[in-house]
Structures are given as structure tokens and as C-alpha cells.
């Protein structure tokens, strides 16, 4: 049972992060390699709001979440927007530069010491015992819940929301979308905002569960195979990809050798790239555009 819980928690972490890669890739074909940094920034935003609003922890959390949405939008409006019309590679390299910048900035502002936003907010992290004697902490459980909620909401939004449809439309054909009067910059900014928001949600919950330090960047990178395995332009794919990678990783830790844990996601990825390079749910045609 504990095995299943461990898989679900890890899958949730990967899925929450991976959907950020997918959102941005889907609308703009840009691989956001600063996603790990943006997610970490989100978690540090919680540290910032928590130190300012330690009396009203819920407000601090909500404010941090709102800020992450704004930050993502700002990243597009002030940086990535200038890259539209340039080669995709140039835009991807811009995100790499952004990542380096953010890492430095975070270090300057918050230093490299580990932080514990949960203690700052004065919250506990009780552990629940599930049937089968599996245990799960509150925030690990919230990670699973958030993943379900975020994916459900994103699905409904993209399916039925007018702006969600516009995001899909702009992803398919930005020129036609523009010709129909859709403000591309608004759509892209929204995608960046949502992507940062979901990443930051993951970052904050991980930080609340087990603390925050600068290694969080690498967690963002580890979620990348999940997005690729599922197919970079498919949300459902990201979810399934996250489950596959998490199951493989936890299984290997449990039954084979914990040393391989780091390699497994990339191993699965390589197998996938050989067998089906566009991912489980990705569209084949999308691959040509990369």
C-alpha cells in the first residue's frame, strides 16, 4: 500500500510540474526550460508572503498563488513577447537565460539557506494512516488532490472556456487566431501565467511538505521526461507520463536499486523516443515543428 501512495505522490509532483511544460508548448511551441526556476520562484514567493503575512497564513498562500500567476504573465509580456517571430530555438535559449537569471536572483534575495514556509505559517503537517497501513502526510495528500483539481479544471477550461478554446486555437494556428481577432499576446501571457501557477502550486506544496532549498530546480528538470513521454502537447499525456515515470522510479527504488532512481525517468524517456518519438498522446505532426 505504501508503495502505491509513494507512486501517487511522486506522480502528482511530476504531473503538476509537467502540465506547465505542456501548456506553454501547446500554445507557442516553445519549450520553457526555465520552468523549474519559475516553480522554485513560486515556492519562494510563499516564503516572502509568509514572512509578511504570518498572521493570516491562508491569505499568504493565496497571495503567493496569485503572484505566481502574475509573474508568469509578466515573464511573457516583458521577455518572451520580444521573441515572437524569432526562431523557436532563440526563444528556448531565452528561457535558459531566464532560468540562470532567476537562480541568481533567488539566491541574492533569499540566500541559499533552506527555508520552511510551513513553520513560518505556523501550520502542522499531520500524517494520516490509510487502509493497508500506508501513511501520507497532509501536504503530500494535498499534492494528489491539487493534481486532480488542476487537471480537472484545466480540462474543463480548455474544453469549454472561451479563453481555453482560444488557447487551443492559437496553439494550432496563431496566424489564423490573430486574423479572427484573438489577441495572441493575451493568450500567450495567460498560458505562461497558468503554467507558472501550476508549477508554483507544486513548488509550494513540496516546500510546505518537506522544505525549500535551491535543489528544487532539479526537481523541475526531472518532471520534464514525464511531459515528453506523454507527448509534449497533450495534458492527458502528461498525466499518464507522470504516472508511468513515477511507477517506474518508485518500483526501481523498492525492488531493484535506489541508485538507479535518478536514471529511470530518462531511461523511460529514451525507450519512448525510440519507439514513439512523439510521445504517448502527442501528435506526430507536432514533432516536425520542433
Amino acid at each position: 500500500m505504501q508503495l502505491v501512495v509513494n507512486i501517487l505522490v511522486l506522480a502528482s509532483i511530476y504531473a503538476l510540474i509537467a502540465c506547465g511544460y505542456v501548456l506553454i508548448y501547446r500554445v507557442s511551441r516553445v519549450l520553457n526550460l526555465a520552468h523549474g526556476e519559475l516553480m522554485m520562484l513560486g515556492a519562494y514567493l510563499l516564503v516572502a508572503t509568509a514572512s509578511g503575512l504570518s498572521n493570516s497564513p491562508v491569505a499568504a498562500l493565496l497571495l503567493a498563488l496569485a503572484l505566481s500567476l502574475v509573474v508568469g504573465g509578466m515573464v511573457y509580456l516583458f521577455l518572451m513577447r520580444r521573441m515572437t517571430g524569432e526562431m523557436v530555438l532563440a526563444a528556448v535559449l531565452t528561457t535558459v537565460a531566464l532560468g540562470i537569471l532567476l537562480r541568481g536572483l533567488i539566491l541574492l534575495i533569499w540566500s541559499a539557506s533552506p527555508r520552511h514556509p510551513r513553520d513560518m505559517l505556523g501550520w502542522e503537517n499531520p500524517v494520516f494512516t490509510l487502509p493497508g497501513d500506508a501513511r501520507i502526510s497532509l501536504y503530500a495528500g494535498l499534492l494528489i488532490v491539487s493534481t486532480v483539481v488542476v487537471y480537472g479544471a484545466l480540462f474543463l477550461f480548455l474544453r469549454f472556456g472561451r479563453w481555453g478554446m482560444r488557447m487551443r486555437a492559437a496553439g494550432q494556428n496563431p496566424l489564423l487566431a490573430a486574423q479572427r481577432g484573438i489577441r495572441l499576446h493575451a493568450v500567450f501571457a495567460l498560458a505562461w501565467g497558468l503554467s507558472t501557477f501550476t508549477g508554483a502550486t507544486a513548488g509550494m506544496l513540496i516546500a510546505l511538505d518537506s522544505g525549500l532549498d535551491s535543489t528544487m530546480v532539479m526537481i523541475g528538470l526531472k518532471a520534464f521526461p514525464a511531459a515528453l513521454v506523454g507527448g509534449l502537447d497533450s495534458l492527458a499525456g502528461a498525466l499518464i507520463g507522470a504516472l508511468i515515470i513515477a511507477a517506474a522510479e518508485v518500483g526501481v527504488i523498492r525492488f531493484i536499486d535506489p541508485l538507479l532512481a535518478d536514471v529511470v525517468p530518462f531511461l523511460v524517456l529514451i525507450v519512448m523516443l525510440v519507439v514513439r518519438p512523439w510521445g504517448l498522446f502527442g501528435t506526430r505532426e507536432e514533432l516536425d515543428r520542433v
Binding site: 489564423l176 479572427r180 484573438i182
Partner: peptide, 24 residues
């Protein structure tokens, strides 16, 4: 001033209703 382009004139993965609904 609206254009009906020559190629790629609809969003192929969207339904007919969605194609109309995306227009602001």
C-alpha cells in the same frame, strides 16, 4: 476588417461550434 484566408482557414482540431466561439 475580417479575412477568410486561402489555406488553413479553420482550426482543424476544434469543432464547428468552437471555431465560431473562439472569435472575440
Amino acid at each position: 476588417l475580417a479575412l477568410v484566408p486561402e489555406r488553413d482557414k479553420v482550426f482543424p482540431n476544434l469543432t464547428v461550434a468552437e471555431n465560431l466561439a473562439v472569435v472575440p
